[in-house]
Simulated assay, not measured.
Amino acid sequence: MSTAGQLAGRVALVTGAGRGIGRGIALRLARDGADIALVDLHPDGIAAVADEITEIGSKATTFVADVSDRDQVFAAVEHAATALGGLDIMVNNAGIALVGPIADVTAAQIEKLWAINVNGVLWGTQAAVAKFLELGNKEQGRISKVINASSIAGHDGFALLGPYSATKFAVRALTQAAAKEHAADGITVNAYCPGVVGTDMWVEIDKRFAELTGAAEGETYDKFVGGIALGRAETPDDVAGFVSYLAGPDADYMTGQAGLIDGGLVYR
């Protein structure tokens, strides 16, 4: 999907960039030629990814922020634009999971989940759009991109993942609405919907399923992977390839969409 250097001269900000899918996205966009602002709660992770990006030959800057805090997200965007000389691509990747029966969900759990998975996307979209407009990207002939993390759970509600699924459905709604509101501003807004990715998040999901269902550790993960048409678990690079497409010029005429990139697990 990607052509080397297709993002040369562009600046991208990636949240949750210290590990897993976020790290994979950041490295792929850097290989595409973009300079990258890495945002995460954990400084050590993004510092290591910044070193990898420098080795690729792109510029990198880091910023520690909690995406559930609107002021911190706006500060991260301001830092990125100042440190790297602009902003063209916002990847609202940061997120957490919650596994458990709907009947057992507490107010504290849902508030934290919603604050990160939904509010974090909302604040990131607000901050990025404001900066795109301030910089005059459209007037310079530059299409700006907001790219949000949804999930297969944003297309199907999964048992024991009800509130998590609800947050990912909400991301799709925000993506569609923002796409309609900001198309005239030269801004596209799309989402990516991964499936079963072999990351630390899925290790924790599998452990929690084991606690709740009595399954052996690894059994739930293997069950989900067994349903994938392409016959293997997803990697961060698989997701990053699709995000690269959304970030690049070939997707300039695509907006308001939430594409499934799951190897053939959920079909829409």
Score class of each variant (00 low, 15 high):
F63Y: 15
V129Q: 03
E219G: 01
S151I: 10
A65Y: 07
A170F: 12
L160G: 02
N117G: 09
A81P: 04
I228H: 13
V266Y: 05
I21T: 05
D238W: 11
G263M: 01
R28N: 09
A178S: 09
G214A: 01
C193V: 08
G157R: 02
G33Y: 09
A149R: 06
Y267I: 04
V171I: 09
T199F: 03
I147M: 13
W202D: 06
G9A: 14
A179V: 00
A159K: 10
I116V: 15
A159P: 15
G100D: 01
F209C: 00
T54A: 15
L41Q: 08
A258G: 13
A149I: 01
A210D: 02
L174Q: 07
A8P: 04
K207Q: 10
G86Y: 09
I56S: 08
L133G: 08
T175R: 08
E217R: 01
T235L: 07
A75C: 06
M1N: 08
D237G: 12
P194N: 01
N92P: 05
A97R: 04
H155P: 09
L113E: 09
M90E: 12
M1S: 15
T15D: 08
A4E: 11
M90I: 00
V99C: 03
G86P: 13
K223G: 08
E52G: 03
D51A: 15
D185H: 11
L160K: 05
S58H: 09
I147T: 06
R232F: 12
Q257N: 14
A17W: 08
G100L: 03
N92K: 09
